[in-house]
Design a protein around this nucleic acid. Structure first.
Length: 344
DNA sequence: AACCCGGGGAA
DNA sequence: TTCCCAGGGTT
């Protein structure tokens, strides 16, 4: 009997959240559909990415690749082009692999079971739960950073969210408050976490859960969530040679085992015959989340047609111009360098 | 279980 | 500056 009262109190929290969501849901393009393809794409785009940052990328991506057939038929490089500037480029590579996976293993029909969705490349427990609940009535909580923050505050729970067991732990807390409509519940949690229960300066005065929030009643909101793991940054030094002549320049494609997977870059080294054509150099500093990148770029303008033809014939570097450049995906600092450099 | 992978906005 | 965002993959 005591357990039933407790369950009822928890369920009330979930229903309050749903009531708030009905009136305050954000008007987002992917809220108008239950097409699993579009929901899947939006879940991937907005991983570790704020809505305002990814919205144009999402809309452009859906316009170019409106369905899984179109995406699967495209080249990987074009998918990367539409991901340009978004970061975490393995998402683009995996999204393309998963599209072909759906064509080959599921006959082009998006899988509807959580366990099957989970098998898609780049789809983890969060994304599988989100797509499953929003599109197919699945009943798994889509536990993300918003769940960690909201639930740790509501329960004044100091479980360390940087602990690798946090996902399981907060999934169990989520199950306590989860109502019937799991799809809306998951999206409501995201909107509450984004608009009300923000990391800093949360709007507890207008929060639909403030009567149920233990951290708020204890005036300890700022103590939750607990996160012990610190972000450490390292230095990364890169050298590039921007070898060009008459508006053309040489590039190559990066591997998929380090940063900027499969994006294009300038030459990391040159042979002795090109050294006389080095005109200048400049250093660019670029901050990543876990790295401070210092890039030394040498401007190599090859004045000799003979040397240019000789060099390009002997090497397998790609030749491009400004037009071709706009159709390839470059790391942000190199993108900026080209746009400032070739204006002359 | 620990570590790696981008870029941008808020405070 | 620091934090963190609709996380997932690799080792």
């Amino acid at each position: 009997m005591e357990k039933n009262n407790r369950d009822a109190a928890f369920l009330q929290v979930g229903n309050k959240l749903l009531d708030w969501y009905k009136k305050n849901a954000r008007d987002l393009p992917f809220r108008q559909t239950k097409d699993p393809y579009k929901i899947w794409i939006c879940e991937i785009v907005f991983q570790q990415t704020r809505i305002n940052q990814g919205l144009n990328h999402y809309n452009n991506f859906i316009k170019r690749f409106p369905d899984v057939q179109t995406l699967a038929a495209a080249e990987e490089d074009e998918v990367l082009l539409y991901w340009k500037g978004l970061g975490y480029y393995s998402r683009a590579i995996n999204i393309h692999k998963a599209a072909r996976q759906i064509m080959n293993e599921y006959q082009g029909t998006f899988p509807s079971e959580y366990d099957e969705i989970l098998k898609l490349k780049g789809v983890g427990k969060y994304t599988a739960a989100a797509v499953s609940s929003i599109c197919f009535g699945g009943r798994m909580p889509a536990v993300d950073g918003n769940f960690y923050r909201v639930l740790s505050r509501v329960f004044a729970d100091d479980f360390d969210i940087s602990n690798s067991r946090a996902f399981v732990y907060f999934s169990e807390l989520a199950n306590l408050v989860m109502p019937e409509n799991v799809g809306d519940f998951n999206q409501a949690m995201m909107d509450l976490g984004s608009e009300i229960c923000k990391p800093k300066n949360p709007l507890c005065g207008v929060c639909p859960l403030n009567k149920d929030c233990l951290a708020f009643s204890l005036n300890k909101i700022s103590e939750f969530p607990v996160k012990t793991k610190k972000v450490k940054t390292e230095n990364l030094d890169l050298t590039y040679y921007f070898v060009h002549r008459n508006g053309q320049f040489l590039i190559q494609q990066r591997k998929d085992d380090f940063i900027w997977k499969k994006l294009f870059e300038f030459l990391p080294a040159i042979s002795a015959e090109l050294e006389p054509f080095i005109k200048s150099s400049k250093t660019i500093s670029h901050k990543l989340t876990h790295k401070n990148v210092n890039i030394e770029i040498y401007d190599v303008e090859v004045d000799s047609e003979t040397v240019w033809n000789d060099f390009t014939a002997q090497n397998e570097y790609l030749i491009t111009d400004l037009e071709g450049f706009h159709h390839k995906s470059f790391p942000k600092p190199l993108e900026n360098y080209v746009q400032n450099s070739l204006k002359d």
